[in-house]
Design a binder for these strands. Structure first.
Lengths: 139, 139
DNA sequence: CTAGGGCTTCCCCTTGCTGGAAGGTCAAGC
DNA sequence: GCTTGACCTTCCAGCAAGGGGAAGCCCTAG
């Protein structure tokens, strides 16, 4: 299989696949003309990578997951550990975004959004703190 | 004020402030020895930037917000527009993360996490689709 | 035999900084 | 007067995770 085929199969752009080879995630063979030649197992790995990335795992996580995947002797606890840590990061990220969202929604709500220059959004960004006093006042 | 002072005031690292000058967000003066000299207004802008960034606005958004902030003739609608678009992006991001979270939580839950190699997480990453059939089966 | 599509490498661009090296400046202490 | 240490300066490199595009092979069809 050439890179185009495996790209179509895995859903990953060819650029990405070359990049993954660069950083050592896959090691396709080369045919006489210099083209990369992908085996079934390479295609399989790439699909695995695509799905791991889609779940938000970092490249380094993917590298570790892939190694565990290939290791028949692995303990599922190792995999679970990685997944749980990732889950935690996701939760943190969600919490952070929700906090932004809340503040921002509040400000958007308070802004008339008309031709006049008065704007609570700018006023808030310009003034000192998002402290407890302000939280109380705006609550 | 030197960069250290304004860094302490704004809570931004000196590196970041230099970067903001690089990309034209602030334009401090220079004193005879070559040191940057920040006016009150610069400090104020940097604080504004810090708060905008904390709300997740991109640098380009910040640039626009800052311009609107400085423009006494602005229409609050313009500000609101930017904020609303950002709010939308945040909502999308949250939705995306929640979906990842759901899938991942499901897998983590199904994994024994012991010394044995059998692992539903790897099995899922390795196999074909997250399609409707699978959603039904795992629901 | 030429056109096209696919493949190769290479290097720069992105976002928003962060770290570090090499060196100038300034105030304090001896 | 000299040193020490904390500041400050510039520039260069790099992170994640690729994307864009140039210059140049390769291969096949008409």
């Amino acid at each position: 299989m050439n890179i185009g085929d495996v790209a179509a199969l895995s859903g990953l752009p060819a650029k990405t696949i070359r990049y993954y080879e660069d950083i050592g995630l896959v090691k396709p063979l080369r045919s006489a003309n210099g083209y990369r030649t992908f085996r079934e197992s390479d295609a399989h790995k790439l699909a695995f990578l695509g799905r791991s990335r889609a779940l938000g795992f970092s490249i380094e996580d993917c590298r570790n997951l892939l190694a565990l995947y290939e290791d028949e002797e692995r303990a599922s606890a190792e995999v679970k550990e990685i997944a749980e840590q990732h889950l935690e990061r996701i939760d943190e990220k969600i919490a952070e975004l929700k906090e932004m969202r809340a503040t921002l929604a509040h400000l958007v709500d308070a802004c008339a959004g008309d031709h006049r220059p008065d704007c609570p959004i700018l006023a808030d960004l310009a003034t000192k703190q998002h402290d407890e006093e302000q939280l109380k006042r705006t609550a």
